[in-house]
Amino acid sequence: MAVGSTGSAAEWWDAPVGTWIRKNIQYILIPFALMAFLLAWQALVVINRYPTFLLPTPGEVAASFVENWRNGILARHLGITLVEIGLGFSIAFTFAALVGYVLARSPLLEKIVSPYLVATQAIPIVAIGPLIVIWINTGPLQNALIAALITFFPMLVNTIVGVRNIRHEYRDLMHSYAANAWQVFTKLEVPAALPVFFGGVRVGITLSVIGVVVVELLWADRGLGFLINFARGQLDTPLLFATVVTMSAMAITLYIGVLILERCIFHWRRKV
């Protein structure tokens, strides 16, 4: 009997449905884990009788989220934050790629410039933020610039490493074909350095989000960071939570966007 029942269980497990469940078990469990988390949260608030301003229930947060999404407040501030992130990231991306390539190709220049680059990294960027605020008054640009400063360095380093790590044999190969500089750049350097460069992009996009939000928290009058500050001032804790949720969703979406982009570009890679 025992043998028979084990056999049938194994059969079920090996059936197409069973296989599908087994393969995707981590995804299937996500909603359950989320549900458990929300229930625990609700129970915590109810049992301890926390006031709303201290810790709202998931229901209150959801209600605030829907309300502020309907009246456009969240969307407006999200839009501003996104513009700042996009701007800051683009500036950092462009400069990191250009400067990184030049430095990678010129060791002498790198020796001259790198102490300054390292020094800028030693300065807490947020500390020179006020200076930028004094110099540039036009809203999103100042926040974007500070975010760009934070984002720039890791992307720069990855560009340099990516270009430097191209094995010398590949350069010899291109040289033996009498390839010109442009061909070496487009057919070897860019595609070969791209995977490492994208490692920098992945870190960079996260840093851009952090940079913009921190700056908004400190001295902006709009954006999601500002909204958090505003909600705290109003003791509107459900709005604060709703903003954090929006922000997290935004950050995750951006990160996944980069991952998807990577998948598309590096389609030739070994699938693990």
Binding site: R167, E169, Y170, D172, L173, K187, L188, P191, A192, L194, F266, W268, R269
Partner: peptide
């Protein structure tokens, strides 16, 4: 060369 030196992309 000693290694194939193919371009993986």
């Amino acid at each position: 060369f000693q290694s194939p030196t193919l371009m993986e992309w």
